[in-house]
Amino acid sequence: MAKKGQTFHHYSFETKKKAVAMRLEGMTKKEVASALQISDIGRLKVWMRKYRELGEEGLVDRRRKIIGSDPDTDREEKEQLSQV
């Protein structure tokens, strides 16, 4: 559970991919975390599990909205969905 004032770190797809590759080469979680400045070693375990299950697609962060999305396109999509 998040604590008040806690900050969360977001890692790029490339960083995740590099971390997985380093683990597959035999480096320890601690070594990878210090080399890539990853604050939570447990993240590596999660990334490895997702990589094994889904491949590189599992490393993509799908939680964020697309920045700069066109409001007109969003409105058109909503209208199309309501007509179905």
Rank of each mutant, 00 (worst) to 15 (best):
R43D: 07
L59I: 05
R64K: 14
K3A: 00
I67A: 13
G42P: 06
K3W: 02
T7A: 08
E56P: 02
E77A: 12
D70H: 05
L54W: 11
A2C: 07
V46C: 11
G58H: 07
I66A: 12
S82F: 11
L44E: 01
V84E: 13
T7M: 11
D70L: 04
R62V: 01
K4G: 01
A2M: 11
R75H: 07
S82Q: 11
I66M: 08
F8A: 12
T15L: 14
L54V: 08
G55Y: 02
F13P: 01
R64H: 11
K16Q: 01
K50F: 06
D70R: 03
A35N: 15
T73Y: 09
K17P: 00
R49M: 11
E77L: 11
A35D: 06
K18Q: 11
E31A: 15
R43F: 09
E31H: 14
D70A: 04
I67C: 06
Q37F: 08
R75G: 00
G68N: 09
G5E: 02
E56I: 07
V32E: 03
R52W: 07
K18W: 00
K50T: 04
V20R: 03
F8C: 13
G42T: 07
H9S: 07
Q6N: 08
W47M: 10
M27A: 09
D74R: 10
R62C: 11
V20L: 04
G26K: 01
K78F: 15
R63T: 14
I41H: 14
M27K: 12
R49V: 13
H10D: 04
P71G: 04
R43V: 01
K50Y: 08
G55S: 03
K18D: 06
G5R: 11
A21V: 00
S69I: 09
W47P: 02
E56G: 09
E77T: 06
Q37S: 15
E25H: 09
Q6K: 05
R43G: 00
M48I: 09
H9N: 06
E76Y: 02
M22D: 03
E57F: 04
K29V: 07
G55K: 04
R63C: 12
G42Q: 08
K3S: 11
E25A: 06
L36P: 02
K45G: 09
A33L: 01
K16F: 05
F8R: 14
E76R: 12
K18N: 01
I38D: 14
R23T: 05
R62W: 03
S12V: 00
K30S: 10
S69R: 13
I67Q: 06
I66H: 13
L24H: 00
M48P: 04
K17D: 05
T28N: 05
S39K: 14
K3E: 07
S12D: 12
L24K: 10
G42W: 05
T15G: 01
F13L: 15
E25F: 01
V84T: 03
R23E: 08
R75T: 04
F8W: 12
G55T: 05
K18H: 13
F8Y: 11
E76S: 02
H10Q: 06
V46Q: 14
S12Q: 03
V60P: 00
Q83R: 13
I41F: 13
L36F: 07
L59V: 04
R64T: 12
M27H: 09
D61W: 15
I66C: 01
I41P: 02
M48H: 10
R62E: 10
A33C: 15
K16G: 03
E57V: 15
R43C: 10
E79N: 13
A2T: 11
D70V: 12
D61H: 13
T15V: 10
